[in-house]
């Protein structure tokens, strides 16, 4: 019995979903035929130079609006100019419209960085450039070691920071020495 009562809402839901799916399917070709296709097809035909041309004449106009009007008249700068001069308001572009960007290389460039993000080196990462080239702190062993754990939160934070920096700078100094030793040792 319980199964029966459960089934009725299920059937109703099924019918509603089916109806929506059919409606969506039927309305799709009409939409797809006009808007996105038109935008996609038209966009490559106009060049950023054409948009610049119009934008220079009418700096008050939005570049996207200009691009949209150009893409609709096939990149005819004269026609767009005429339209603006005659006082007609240019149509607002649809949200899906992508005007060509002045830098044609943009898509290619945005595609490459995620593949291999260049990791900043430690000196850049921890802002140590200013501390390079200085000799090591005079006899670091003899200095009273900064207390590793402090009751003060800010002091703790700066101690940790200091330990990080020292670790990196020490490694860098050591590596530099090694390089120098290798360079001077090589000819011998």
């Amino acid at each position: 019995m319980t199964e029966q009562t459960l089934n009725i809402p299920q059937i109703l839901v099924f019918i509603v979903v089916t109806a929506l799916a059919v409606r969506w399917y039927l309305s799709k070709p009409a939409n797809a035929g006009t808007r996105p296709a038109a935008a996609n097809r038209a966009a490559p035909r106009i060049s950023p130079a054409q948009i610049d041309q119009v934008a220079q004449m009418f700096p008050q106009l939005d570049r996207r609006t200009i691009a949209w009007d150009l893409s609709r008249n096939g990149g005819n700068v004269a026609a767009t100019t005429e339209k603006v001069l005659s006082g007609r308001v240019l149509e607002t572009p649809p949200v899906s419209f992508q005007p060509p960007t002045p830098r044609a290389a943009t898509p290619a460039r945005t595609a490459t960085p995620p593949v291999k993000p260049a990791q900043p080196d430690l000196i850049t990462r921890y802002n140590l450039a200013s501390k390079l080239g200085k000799p090591a702190d005079p006899a670091p062993e003899e200095q009273p070691k900064p207390k590793a754990w402090s009751q003060d939160r800010n002091e703790r934070q700066s101690n940790l920071q200091k330990r990080r920096e020292e670790m990196i700078l020490a490694a860098r100094r050591k590596m530099e020495e090694k390089e120098r030793a290798k360079a001077s040792g090589a000819p011998a």
Partner: peptide, 8 residues
């Protein structure tokens, strides 16, 4: 990589 990470 070690050298690069130390900025050398």
């Amino acid at each position: 990589n070690v050298k690069k990470s130390l900025g050398l």
